[in-house]
């Protein structure tokens, strides 16, 4: 999509959200090569870096770090942020728009299930829906 919008100069910006466990897939790095090879400065990748995947902690399942160095060496502009800080998020998006000639990767440090005490940093909640009791409890905590 980013390549297509470059072709027709449509000025479209493409945002791509990646999980961190997902970065273990080879295709992500094929795409990363393509993005910098074709100078896709209209592409902004956001990595949801919660260090959790289905089998557990990312660095223990299959170590993907150091992420910033990997993206940098693949030709990306890299911005590290706290993924729960709205000011940092907005600033990062604004900065990414000014980057020329290369794509941007925003590595957002996050906590899975943030704000819900029994969900925070628990890999088990990766693909599970809360039951009604858990749901009500979670909503109560989030409204605090």
């Amino acid at each position: 999509m980013a390549l297509a919008s470059k072709l027709d100069h449509e000025g479209v910006r493409v945002y791509c959200i990646c999980g961190d466990g997902e970065l273990e897939e080879g295709q992500v790095w094929e795409a990363a090569m393509t993005a910098s090879h074709y100078k896709l400065d209209n592409l902004c990748v956001v990595v949801d870096n919660n260090n959790l995947q289905i089998d557990g902690q990312v660095d223990q399942v299959m170590n993907i770090y150091p992420l910033d160095k990997k993206f940098k060496s693949f030709g990306f502009e890299v911005i590290n942020i706290d993924g729960h800080n709205m000011n940092q998020i907005i600033n990062a998006f604004n900065k990414a728009k000014t980057v020329k000639g290369k794509p941007t990767a925003i590595i957002a440090k996050t906590i899975k299930g943030k704000g819900v005490s029994f969900m925070e940093n628990v890999a088990d909640w990766h693909g599970k829906a809360p039951n009604e009791k858990e749901y009500n409890l979670a909503i109560k905590e989030l409204q605090k």
Partner: peptide
Amino acid sequence: FDMGISEQD
């Protein structure tokens, strides 16, 4: 577009 030896991408 030559994508290199990256068929998936």
